[in-house]
């Protein structure tokens, strides 16, 4: 409570000096809050922070506030002073929260000011256990529809991209499949290649070693066009199903809703510059991410679309918001 009082009084003090603030922003270290532990968005935030520091000479500190699928970190930023010194680096999973949780301590679209979409997600492959008697997507669907068979699909947890994607696919094609959630991509992958579960949507970087070594068979690529590094794998559409169109893996930066426009513009420009540097592009691409560095407005559109898309997917998966 005391903390809240201090933060709000601090915020009102800063709001007084807002006009002069924007010109010399940032005059102290900028904090990038990540609602997760190390890895994932934390890595993106650290790559970006390192580049911004070299390019502007200012300090950028990555701060982890993990817990509750990112809610705790997001809440912290939503309620922070809107001065541009406390910013959120988040994943698309933020957009799924409204359809998973009824009592969110913030509004995903109204409590934040989108600053920039840092990266877009790579597409996923639909993998099957190699000894499953199916060679392609049509056969998989036919196999799953046969009442003699019981097809199990793994995921990295309830409401995660891999779960929602399969739920959309199953619903669109009327394929009955049983969901088996795991805690991490690693466990879901081991279960697939051991034949415990039969099929799994997996992002490109994670899927490639399994496809190349023959431990898993790719039956479709969930993207409008084929992947140039795997031209043999058909797209979902070519293989006989509609693509899921689920955008579930981007990372973006946002701040508290009341952030002054000049600060947003400053960050937008610097992030675009940072993302355009060859080293940063290379690092992100190697991690299987697609560098974007767009404007706040563009990111706002992406966010709104993701909230809708994830909501539809969650309903398709039959998830009851709690």
């Amino acid at each position: 409570m005391l903390k809240a009082i201090i933060t709000t009084s601090f915020a009102s003090l800063l709001a007084l000096g807002n006009a002069s603030l924007a010109q010399d922003y940032p005059s102290r270290p900028v904090h990038f809050v990540v609602g997760f532990g190390a890895g994932g968005p934390d890595t993106t935030a650290r790559i970006l922070a390192a580049q911004l520091a070299t390019q502007t000479g200012k300090r950028f500190v990555v701060e982890n506030k993990p817990g509750s699928s990112g809610i705790i970190g997001a809440e912290f930023v939503a309620k922070a002073a809107p001065d541009g010194y406390t910013l959120l680096v988040t994943t698309a999973s933020l957009a799924s929260l409204p359809s998973l949780q009824t009592k969110l301590p913030f509004d995903v679209q109204k409590s934040f000011k989108p600053i920039s979409q840092i990266v877009a997600s790579e597409a996923s492959f639909l993998l099957v256990y190699p000894q499953l008697p199916v060679k392609n997507l049509v056969e998989l669907m036919a196999y799953a529809k046969d009442p003699k068979n019981r097809v199990l699909y793994g995921s990295t947890g309830i409401g995660t991209g891999s779960h929602l994607r399969m739920a959309l696919f199953a619903k669109a094609n009327n394929v009955p499949m049983q969901h088996v959630p795991f805690k991490s991509p690693g466990e879901a992958a081991v279960s697939l290649i051991g034949g415990e579960t039969h099929t799994l949507f997996m992002t490109t970087t994670q899927a490639l070693p399994l496809i190349k070594s023959g431990k898993a068979r790719a039956v479709a690529y969930d993207y409008p066009t084929r992947a140039d590094f795997m031209p043999d794998i058909l797209t979902m559409k070519e293989a006989g199903s509609a693509p899921t169109d689920l955008d579930s893996g981007w990372h973006g930066m946002m701040g508290p809703a009341a952030m002054p426009e000049p600060v947003v513009k400053w960050l937008e420009t610097e992030i675009r510059k940072a993302i355009a540097t060859p080293e940063v592009r290379e690092r992100l691409t190697n991690l299987g991410l697609i560098p974007v560095g767009g404007t706040g407005e563009e990111f706002g559109t992406v966010l709104a679309a993701a909230v809708k898309g994830m909501g539809d997917a969650a309903r398709a998966a039959g998830i009851q918001p709690r």
């Binding site: 890595t43 992958a189 399994l210 070594s213 991690l287």
Partner: peptide
């Protein structure tokens, strides 16, 4: 296998 056994190995892989 290219599969991380936990978060530490996800970071190492990254």
């Amino acid at each position: 296998l290219g599969i991380p056994a936990g978060a530490v190995f996800s970071m190492l892989m990254g």
